[in-house]
Design a protein around this nucleic acid. Structure first.
Lengths: 331, 331
DNA sequence: TTGAAAGCGGTACCAG
DNA sequence: CTGGTACCGCTTTCAA
């Protein structure tokens, strides 16, 4: 900047004015400065500029999701990007893969980078570690899963109701032996979904009959193996509820390989782009990711704009989309 | 930092030493500093620290893809993240949606943030604008599409060969009326794929018979509409080559709605997670995204580590995965 | 092992 | 409309 100033024959302050498009610089001076900047390949340094600036903004929001490669995470990030583009906010993204330590570590790293805000699909069971940051005014919005140990904005799905819808649907179709595939119950979302399953069974006078619950199923491969094992048992289930999209995909894979696609009912949680094109089309409990992302994006912007009201917890109602796989009757 | 120093009764320099885990600080002093830092909720400021540091590194790499919501882009970003995690590099991601201006604009913005490097799946036709940055030593790796107007590292797929494989396959199955769906030829990748189609037709003595080429098909919806229109014509094609993954998905959707899934052959370009589970399973030309990402990630790391040799252009060979949809014979 | 002072690239504040 | 000077938060350099 000093070089540019020298070449243009002005002070650094004037260069600063031009670079920041402040008013009050004569056109010819402006032109000279711009010319000098171009000639010297000058590049403004945002970090340095923010250092002295009073209300500094990096224009970066940290977004922590489970797996950027998963359609749920990817859609979320994409929608946030769109929601923030015209505000000039960029997304610094990271996958957590359900690793609690990674979450804390990355958050710490992001704080060090002075991100303007944080969107978190948490992997850790408690989030007390964020308390100082939130107290200091950092906007933090939890997505898809609720914060624990602190109170901050969140946008989540009614997981309990979603699972209820799924099981209720299968029971109505006539199923009695329903296998449930889900993550470890230590993950809040999984726990809520299990509760929903129990609600549905209770509603049909079948409390405590959840003998086919398989927890700790974390990946597509896990689900595939679990379904294979299940179907090989003496009295296999006639229906499966896979409580996360990759688990549904693994289930479809296993059923396809075993030639059971059209004889075992399957309902997934989370819709995904091609669910409708599978054979049979997959019945799912859909949570509206676009809506979720929109709400999250808006909430963060409002906090960024100075809204300091009490934390808001928004809950999205899931809906059941019957497409075929969930309507297969028990054999 | 000054406050921490005061509270701990040491100089700022000593605090700096502790924060950066430099050796040569007595344990008790270290402990005092740490305690003071905790009590004051001190957070190290990476930007400020980099300002004076000699070989400053922000630890951020800008990754520009077409659409983070698309499985190709998402997988690429995810794999890069993994490749860089233990080096402490984070990904600042952005979607371009084939908008050339956005590409330049975002790159400019990222330069301002002093990213350590750039990975670009370009949207713009020429990249001269990057010349000064590359000259200044910024590592830039192009992925999936070649740079034009400048010379810098790239990792791309042999698109021409991929398209050749697809058409060749369909011709061998017996097809003569093959529709080709692709992006505008102004996109280099699309152009190469069209060349590949022509190669294949020529190889079968059918030069110039490319009467069913449909360019400018940009989205899943475009593809769906195009296929609907095609199949409604007096003498519809007996096979379709959809030269990008979303176009294949749109085609499947259209064929499914028209009840033609099992009577019209379809080959896609780019594999995606559920292609195998569609009905019929989708035959595709696969480009190994994981491999692509690995090569891109490695190349960038090497440049970051000071490799200043001439730009390297790696080309990945695509393979045809026959799964069913591409083996449907002409009716 | 520790500290003082200069300086990184830029902006704030106030004077001219 | 333009410039001078202090200073942002931290590291470098060199002296103690």
């Amino acid at each position: 900047m000093r070089d540019v100033a020298a070449l243009a024959g002005v002070s650094v302050k004037t260069v600063s004015r031009v670079v920041n498009e402040e008013s009050g610089v004569k056109a010819d001076v402006r032109a000279r400065v711009l010319a000098a900047a171009t000639r010297l390949d000058y590049r403004h340094n945002l970090a340095a500029s923010n250092l002295r600036r009073s209300r500094a903004r990096t224009g970066v929001v940290g977004v922590l999701v489970q797996d950027l490669g998963n359609s749920f995470s990817a859609s979320l990030v994409r929608a946030l990007e769109d929601a923030w583009r015209d505000r000039g906010l960029m997304v610094l993204a990271a996958s957590l893969d359900e690793a609690a330590e990674r979450e804390q570590q990355i958050v710490e790293n992001l704080i060090t980078r002075r991100v303007d805000g944080l969107v978190i699909v948490p992997a850790s069971p408690r989030h007390d570690y964020l308390a100082p940051e939130i107290r200091a005014g950092l906007p933090v919005v939890f997505a898809d899963r609720l914060p624990r140990g602190i109170d901050t904005d969140s946008v989540t799905t009614d997981n309990r109701r979603g699972a209820f819808l799924a099981i209720n649907h299968l029971v109505h179709v006539g199923h009695r032996r329903i296998a449930v595939l889900t993550d470890a119950p230590s993950i809040a979302t999984a726990e809520e979904r299990i509760s929903g399953v129990q609600d549905a069974l209770a509603a049909h006078g079948r409390e405590g009959t959840l003998d086919l619950l398989h927890t700790g199923i974390r990946s597509e491969a896990d689900a595939e193996a679990a379904v294979r094992a299940l179907m090989a048992e003496p009295s296999p289930p006639t229906a499966i509820f896979a409580a996360r999209n990759v688990l549904a995909q693994g289930s479809v894979r296993a059923l396809a390989e075993m030639g059971l696609r059209h004889s075992v009912a399957l309902v997934g949680f989370d819709d995904f782009p091609l669910a409708q094109l599978l054979d049979p089309p997959l019945t799912v409990v859909r949570q509206d990711v676009a809506r979720l992302a929109r709400l999250v994006g808006t909430r963060l912007l409002e906090r960024l704009d100075g809204d300091t009201s009490a934390p808001i917890h928004e809950i999205i109602k899931p809906t059941l989309i019957a497409r075929g796989s969930g309507e297969i009757p028990p054999s």
